[in-house]
Design a protein around this nucleic acid. Sequence first.
DNA 1: CTGTTAGCGCTTTCAA
DNA 2: TTGAAAGCGCTAACAG
Lengths: 343, 343
Amino acid sequence: MKPKKATIHDIAKKLSITASTVSRALNNNPRISEATKKAVFKVAKDLNYQPNNIAAALRSGKSQLIGIIVPRINRSFFSSVIRGVEEVANTLGYGVIVSQSYEKIENEISVVNSLLNARVDGIMASIVDNKTENYEHYENVIKKGIPLVLFDRTTKEIETSQVVIDDYLGGYMVTEHLIKQGCKKIIHYTSDRTINIYKERYRGYIEALKDYNIPFNQSFVFKNNMLLDGGRDSTEKLLESGQKFDAIFSASDYAAAGAMQVMKEQNIKIPDDIALAGFSNEPFTSLTDPPLTTVSQFPIEMGQAAAELFFEILDSTKKKVIPQKTVLHPELIVRASSLKKGK
Amino acid sequence: MKPKKATIHDIAKKLSITASTVSRALNNNPRISEATKKAVFKVAKDLNYQPNNIAAALRSGKSQLIGIIVPRINRSFFSSVIRGVEEVANTLGYGVIVSQSYEKIENEISVVNSLLNARVDGIMASIVDNKTENYEHYENVIKKGIPLVLFDRTTKEIETSQVVIDDYLGGYMVTEHLIKQGCKKIIHYTSDRTINIYKERYRGYIEALKDYNIPFNQSFVFKNNMLLDGGRDSTEKLLESGQKFDAIFSASDYAAAGAMQVMKEQNIKIPDDIALAGFSNEPFTSLTDPPLTTVSQFPIEMGQAAAELFFEILDSTKKKVIPQKTVLHPELIVRASSLKKGK
DNA sequence: CTGTTAGCGCTTTCAA
DNA sequence: TTGAAAGCGCTAACAG
């Protein structure tokens, strides 16, 4: 039933050479003659030889595996980042293990551990919200000398290479766009948790208002979970409050979708009565009615950039690597949800 | 910088016992006294010991890792299936490696190989379209005695356990629902590739028509890539053809979204002029305007079911396991896109 | 260009 | 209840 797999020793025996020669041939070591290489590859094929990466990993200490931690993979943004990472990792002969933290610190700690036990050669992560500011698990990774790169959801508390988009700029661009559409009373939805990216978008919002001499109004800012129901919630509260407003800038596409639902239910016209914009360019944003103005974060490029930083650390023979930070430029995607007539 | 990690030998030395005792203690072997166990765990903690799974895997031949292959992870359906698998795998101490085939047979072959090289204890896969009917890579897996479970996109050509939803029934339910809404000329969008699930949904469509004495019309069936642009394409062709119709049942939510876009552009009212339904219950379907009628496939449950079948194979000591097939029941989710007034 | 040798860290008979 | 010894399959000095 379970035929025992061929090893390099089997190949060696068949050719009356030694295992080390076979190993070298298989790894294309330049010091092996073409003739032996060819012979080795032929026999390997005949025996249906499959290298045992585990043995190689144990011996060499390198598993050729990278662990990626994201809050959840069913977000288009994160799965696209992963795709970007895979693109560059695969060409370099590295595989990728994807783990999800489901936004919970307990899970994050446990997956970091699993990844470490699986002896990944390094970790790339988008961290979860963490009010305790306890980053021990990640600091441990660094202490062990294992390359760590953070992307998107990062913190300066962890001293390692990072790649982010300029969320501040993104927030600024959306707000500026709404202002240029003639909006003066712009509501902002932001996260109720302490996640950097949302703070930055918020900062961009405030700064744009300032630059265009529009007074900032604290009661215009609503915090929610940045999901569909959070957006619905905030919008209901907003409408109940009776405040006048002419635009909503939600720092999340999902919350913007919630806002859209509630406003439609109340017969508020988008964009004529209220202009609406989200953030992230989730695929569904082009499918809503009206299509949603949003910001592209170039996730594939972010994955590639993260992988590049990662391999820089990995390749550096020198003990200390200065943490790098790559900042990507966001792009405003204007769609019908924020286009006032005659503009 | 890079402190060498503690091994069981370090623990053994500290306690003046042998590595084998430490190993047994760590694995909770009943033949070890509680006292030694306690001591071992204490020292392990002190030394910040992390087990080297790679060494264990090499020695035992078990990596405690399951490989999952899906077309792409940024489909809500697949990421939810993965979540279901993780739920049961993690509780049993197994980790999960996710690989994407991106719908290409070359990629599929190569990831199967990578997974095998990584010495996963088994593979769960949703296969790609494959007109050559060449399933050698999967048959190889079975031949090696490595548990294989197929889910969603399966084929009877591969003799192994499978879990699917009753796509035939799903197709039937949607069609029946449309008929009950008074529709008589129902268009069907199906895949232009030979993927089982779409054939089944198609079959359900035909059978429902038959049961309600509605003549089947071949010119009502459009094949496309089941993506947004495919749906747009088919809808444009459909409208150009000048055929009369009163409903569209798309076997994919994305293609249904494309149909919705084109119809809106042409000022066709949904559902009043044309009723529309998709398939899969992708999250965006509740966000479109009108919200899209669709079919839930219970992806998390599918993942759990697949994992259960998987561990059944794994646990079976007997050489031969009879391939099992789990069939899940789909659920029709009726939303505004298919609700005719007065019904 | 190839062979010898040792060992990565762990599990697991066999023996005590 | 614990120890001794062997070895999983591979790589990498070192030696020639």
